[in-house]
Amino acid sequence: MQPLEASTMFKATNDLLLDVDELSVGVNVAGREIGVLSNVSFNVGKGEIVGVVGESGCGKSLTALAIIGLLGDNVRITGGTITLDGERISSLSSTQMRKIRGSRIGMIFQEPMVALNPLMRVGRQVKEVLVIHAIGNRKSRKARVLELFRQVGLPDPKLRYRQFPHQLSGGMRQRVMIAMALAAEPKLLIADEPTTALDVTVQAQILDLLEDIRTRLGTSVVLVTHDMGVVSEVADRVVVMYAGQVVESAPVAELFENARHPYSVGLLGSVFGSNFEESSDELPTISGRVPSIGEVPSGCPFEPRCENAIDVCRSDRPPAASVGTNHIVACWSPVELPRMRLFGKGVESS
């Protein structure tokens, strides 16, 4: 393992779209600032789908919201930078950031049922993006929305255009959200748990759509999910987050074959079973829970739940280190290869 320079891989090339570098975010709770993201670094290449995974409460949504500049009133970036297409967007004014939202970054959310304004026809809600960013004119905008509806696979676009959100199914609403996010042809699409609230068949369709969008439009996608299964379907690269930190990142095939962080191994095991076969009856789960904000231990955040833990894990935070091509892990005591033998050490069978 070699120690790692601040940011990696794509930085030198022109293929880099998004670079999140040492991002730290703090939440103000009753007058006290508590760190919730610490030194999060990852990047997204042009046309790349990067999955950000971790259990609920690991800071995935905060990372996504920090990128699009929509952290709440009591939340702020305390360190690090976010660079989009060579431009440092983490230090832009709110007015400048507003111009980027919707036009250069699109975002969709988990709950398509409530993410749309219930009183406005969906066509108008999609068209609003074009109005805000002064794209096209009155006539061309409607045509563009209908075209977007076709692109995202909404049946009968003309009818949908005039409908209200409650008249659409969950899957159709998520398609509307995607149409909205893509309306101004942003280069980056952030999808925060886009399929979590949908049933399985619709999930698969939405994931197919995201992949299709990447292929046809070259849009980069940050796919936030708690589900390794979703990542395995569409992502090119995976960033594993735990307690507000990146613990491992690797190309998807590399992670699935050679996951090194005990947490990643546990997440994979809980989806695919210890032998990565979905047929196994009882999936192992990681015992314990994600620490709440303010309770993150000073050493490795995963140490209390980790069966690989050694003394140093309790006292010092592990630095990110390269363990292969594009493969980074932050762990003092990574799972050794071959994994099969060791599987189960960092993971408890339920």
């Binding site: 959310f109 409530v114 749309l116 959200m177």
Partner: peptide, 11 residues
């Protein structure tokens, strides 16, 4: 949530 959606549009 729809308020957040509107903000992501750049409103």
């Amino acid at each position: 949530d729809y308020v957040r959606t509107a903000r992501t549009k750049g409103a």
